[in-house]
Simulated scan of single mutants.
Amino acid sequence: MEIIRIGMADLGVAKSPDRLRTTGLGSCVGVVLYDVVHKVGGMAHVMLPESSLGKGGQITVGKYADTAIPRLIQEMERAGASVRHMVAKMAGGAQMFAALGNCDTMRIGPRNVEACKKALQSAQIRIVAEDTGGNCGRTIEFDTSTGILQIRTVNQGVKEV
């Protein structure tokens, strides 16, 4: 078994029995897709809701919900997954800057969650588990052999979904 680390603004795919892990989910959202039949998993560490927020012509695909999720689906299909067997799990999207006010630009976490849900809905992928919001950071690890997403939340312990 290998643990594949997914960095910020990154995405990756693994097959059973390997695992996917990302750390530092504050306002970022960890999106996990899983083909339950072929036991292929994918994870994206989404930092921002829309690629239109990017500066210049070159964008990092894994950074934005509207580009990361479609690319993750493509990568998983290349690894033998089928979108019709995929389900999604999400964690993160915390409101890390609540003390700075409630203006829309400071609502990065909630906006990331909304954008990820929109992209998943467009792909017709059902969300089966979610641990989003709040104001604490998270680390997630996904086990492709069981389909279990382990979520470690600062000061709140570990849970599995």
Score class of each variant (00 low, 15 high):
Val29Thr: 04
Ala79Met: 14
Glu114Cys: 05
Met76Asp: 12
Gly24His: 11
Ala94Arg: 00
Lys89Trp: 14
Ala14Asp: 05
Ile125Arg: 04
Ile73Lys: 13
Gly24Glu: 06
Met86Ala: 12
Gly93Gln: 03
Lys63Gly: 03
Leu48Asp: 07
Gly109Pro: 03
Cys116Asn: 05
Cys136Tyr: 09
Ala65Gln: 12
Arg138Phe: 06
Met8Asp: 13
Glu130Ser: 08
Val40Lys: 09
Arg126Lys: 15
Cys116His: 00
Ala81Trp: 13
Leu100Tyr: 14
Asn112Val: 02
Pro49Tyr: 09
Gly93Trp: 02
Pro49Ser: 13
Asp66Pro: 07
Cys136Ile: 02
Thr67Ile: 11
Gly30Arg: 08
Val87Pro: 12
Met43Val: 02
Arg21Asp: 04
Asp35Gly: 11
Ala9Leu: 11
Tyr34Ser: 00
Val40Tyr: 06
Pro110Ile: 02
Phe97Thr: 10
Ser16Asp: 12
Asp104His: 11
Lys89Asp: 13
Ile127Gln: 02
Arg138Cys: 03
Leu20Ala: 06
Gly134Met: 00
Thr23Asp: 14
Ser52Ile: 12
His38Pro: 07
Cys103Ile: 15
Ser16Phe: 11
Gly24Leu: 08
Gly92Ile: 00
Gly42Ser: 09
Arg78Glu: 14
Cys28Trp: 07
Phe142Ile: 02
Gln74Met: 14
Ala123Gly: 02
Pro70Asp: 09
Gln58Met: 02
Leu25Ser: 01
His38Gln: 13
Gly57Asp: 11
Lys89Gln: 15
Gly24Arg: 11
Thr23Ala: 14
Ala94Gly: 03
His38Ile: 05
Ile125Asp: 01
Ser122Ile: 04
Met76Gly: 12
Val36Phe: 07
Asn102Trp: 10
Arg107Leu: 10
Ala94Ile: 00
Ala9Met: 12
Arg138Gln: 08
Ala99Glu: 12
Gly92Asn: 09
Tyr34Glu: 02
Leu33Ile: 07
Met106Asp: 13
Glu141Val: 08
Thr132Tyr: 00
Ala91His: 02
Ile69Gln: 12
Gln95Asp: 04
Gly93Lys: 00
Ile108Asn: 01
Arg84Gln: 14
Tyr64Glu: 06
Thr144Asn: 10
Ala99Ser: 13
Asn112Lys: 01
Ala68Glu: 05
Asp143Glu: 11
Met96Gln: 05
Lys118Ala: 14
Lys39Gln: 13
Cys28Asn: 04
Glu50Ala: 15
Glu130Phe: 05
Arg21Ile: 09
Ala94His: 00
Asp143Leu: 09
